[in-house]
Simulated scan of single mutants.
Amino acid sequence: MHHFIYNALPARVVFGSGTQAQVTQELKNLGCCKALVLTTPQQVDQGHVVEDLLGDLCVGLYTRATMHTPTHITDDAVKAAQELKADCIVAVGGGSTIGLGKAIALHTDLPQIVIPTTYAGSEATPIIGQTENGVKTTQKTLKVLPEVIIYDVDLTLTLPPKMSVTSGINAIAHAVEALYSQDANPVTNLLAQEGIKSIASALPVIIQEKDTALLLKARSDALYGAWACGTCLGAVGMSLHHKLCHTLGGTFDLPHAETHTVILPHAIAYNTPFAADAIAKAALSLGVRNAAQGIYDLAKELGAPCSLKELGMKEEDLEGAADIAVRSPYSNPVPLEREKLLKLLRDAWAGTRPE
């Protein structure tokens, strides 16, 4: 018998096409009537759509959500929520907007409804990352877990192809880390493998297919995979890959999904000798023999960035990144050694295909 501990997360999930229209009923189900809608500056139009759906149940639209959840933006958003006497947060967008909603909830205990428009997966986790003074830190608390997630496949149809790839591989990273987490269990393993397979098979179709029906199915599969990947990560924990990405994003301001896409093959290669069974599960879901090479090849074939250099990382900053990464490291199948991490980062900077 395999002994394990599994904690199911309390959340309501509404999945389908056209489901965004249910936001008003979901708000009422929570007993709320004064929603503050959140977006990034780039997604204001989507915020207005939700405003219109909510009508008098919406007290305002906050549009300053920012990548890596800087604390000064959170402070401003909390103040806005309090001044408007909001009793609920409705976050519309990707990881930046979802992160801000979580940060507001952390300070105010306001319930959250999340309407994801990417494959970030953060909406399914009780994990929040915040950046202050150039350092990104994370914590895990049920205070930030959204009460309701509304997945509307229609909202992902206009997600640009390149962004779809990096967002999808970002989600795959959640599942890979869940497979070799110290809290891994049969339930999250199944979710992780399902999520990896769903997204990896959908991304080439999203990039290459012109048939509307096939595209819709691929978008649905990718969004379903994002939920599965986020859910399994939320139930277990983060390791080397996320530590490096939080370091590179929070301190060096690299773009979130793109950084995950570049780092993941190298993080897998680093851990493979020490988590062979877990990585083998990932490879099987990807349909390849070598998981690190499989992820790298998938990203490259679909036109995603494969090097930190492409993202604007300076080679002279790699030493500093390695130093930060070994401080307060996340749990990992093998200890994080500075020189080995530096080699990993140099390979990622150059875009070298993992061996």
Rank of each mutant, 00 (worst) to 15 (best):
T212P: 10
M1G: 14
C229P: 12
L233A: 13
I199N: 02
E355G: 11
Q208V: 05
G134A: 01
V187H: 08
E339R: 15
A282I: 11
L342V: 10
G55T: 06
I207D: 02
L53G: 03
V44Y: 08
D109F: 13
T19A: 05
H246C: 05
L214D: 08
D317P: 11
P204S: 10
T352V: 15
R12P: 12
S96T: 14
G234L: 15
N271C: 09
G287N: 13
T63M: 12
I279Q: 01
G18W: 13
T259E: 05
L216W: 07
H246R: 03
L36C: 11
L84C: 15
G351Q: 02
C58K: 03
S122W: 07
L57Y: 10
Y119V: 01
L308F: 08
Q25P: 04
P265V: 01
H107C: 13
I128A: 10
A192S: 07
I172F: 02
L159R: 00
L284A: 13
V326Q: 08
I150G: 00
H48V: 14
G168A: 12
V176P: 01
P111Q: 08
V205R: 06
E355H: 14
I127C: 11
V92W: 02
H256S: 04
V326W: 12
S331K: 08
A184K: 08
V49C: 12
L27C: 04
S181C: 12
D52A: 12
F274R: 06
F274V: 04
V90D: 03
A175Q: 03
G230I: 02
E26P: 02
C232W: 03
G287Y: 13
L142W: 10
T247W: 02
C33T: 09
T66C: 03
P146L: 07
C32K: 06
A77N: 04
G249L: 01
H256Y: 11
Q25W: 12
E310K: 05
Y119M: 02
I115M: 06
Y330F: 12
L9P: 10
D52N: 07
D317Q: 14
Q82T: 15
L344A: 03
V92R: 08
Q43I: 07
M313S: 06
R289C: 14
K340G: 08
D317G: 05
D52M: 04
Q43L: 15
I263D: 01
H266P: 04
Q208A: 12
Y6K: 13
T24D: 10
G101V: 00
K85S: 07
L100G: 00
L286R: 07
G93E: 00
A91E: 01
D211G: 05
Q182N: 11
H260I: 06
G129I: 04
L345W: 05
N189V: 13
L110N: 00
L341R: 05
L336I: 15
T63I: 14
T24M: 09
P335V: 14
E339S: 12
